[in-house]
């Protein structure tokens, strides 16, 4: 119990002091996972929209495959990206192994199924006649699609947040392809592993607290947007 209280106290002290090491690691985590999610959106959102809007043969199988992607183990994705980027692998010439770019690639692969799967459900939940109506009022097909997506935007926001939550908290892939290099590829999760191994439980715990606080902030912002919109819709009804 002493260990726990002491670690907690030291963690709060580190946070209040704005420890530079902790700050650097947090910023790199945000940069890597943020970029990865953007890339995951670029990969996953078009798939989610296309599958969400269209009916075609084998659609159920595609959706099942996307949902299987939720269960992709980060270490397996890490191993795959490692083998691709290794000097002995097919993309070794890029010299990307053990750089933040390699971590971004691995995390984008992990984020894409979340973005695709959840945005798919959001797009599908919007009544299809909104596009009919917009077209009838003179909108081009692209603009009609944009209006449909606008209606699904909170669900799509949830998809992005879910993807972010999945990658900012994973350790297997970034450890393998990033190498946990101090000041270069050390992010919150790999720092937690290292500091725990070093016996610096307080530093590890401080990182864990920041990770949780970030996850909370992102989710709180989304919830606020969702709830605010529901309330506004109710007011309009009256």
């Amino acid at each position: 119990m002493d260990l726990f209280i002491e670690s907690l106290r030291e963690a709060v002290r580190l946070l209040l002091r704005g420890d530079r090491y902790v700050l650097e690691v947090v910023l790199l985590s945000l940069r890597v996972s943020g970029t990865a999610v953007l890339l995951g959106v670029a990969l996953g959102l078009p798939v989610g929209i296309a599958v969400g809007l269209r009916q075609f043969r084998g659609r159920g199988l595609v959706i099942a495959l996307i949902h299987t992607g939720f269960a992709l183990p980060p270490v397996v994705v890490g191993l795959f990206v490692y083998m691709m980027l290794s000097r002995a692998g097919p993309a070794g010439q890029l010299e990307m192994l053990f750089t933040p770019a390699a971590m971004v690639v691995a995390q984008a692969v992990l984020a894409a199924p979340y973005v695709a799967g959840i945005s798919l459900a959001a797009v599908q939940a919007v009544p299809g006649d909104i596009r009919l109506q917009a077209s009838a009022l003179g909108a081009s097909p692209l603009l009609a699609l944009w209006m449909h997506l606008r209606e699904a935007r909170l669900g799509i926001g949830a998809a992005v947040v879910a993807g972010f939550g999945a990658v900012i908290s994973e350790v297997g892939a970034v450890m393998m392809v990033g190498g946990n290099i101090a000041g270069e590829t050390r992010v919150m999760t790999t720092a937690i592993v290292l500091e725990t191994r070093r016996g610096n439980f307080a530093t590890a715990f401080a990182m864990g607290l920041i990770l949780l606080a970030l996850a909370f902030a992102v989710n709180a912002a989304l919830t606020r947007a969702q709830q605010g919109r529901t309330l506004a819709a109710e007011r309009r009804t009256w």
Binding site: T35, A42, T99, A139, W146
Partner: peptide, 28 residues
């Protein structure tokens, strides 16, 4: 509609720029 269309167009470059930003991570 015109206002919406403008906003749609205004946001595309931002997304593109963000996607390109990650390329700057690589070092040798």
């Amino acid at each position: 509609f015109p206002g919406l269309r403008d906003r749609f167009r205004a946001r595309l470059p931002i997304l593109c720029a963000a996607l390109i930003a990650f390329a700057s991570c690589a070092r040798a």
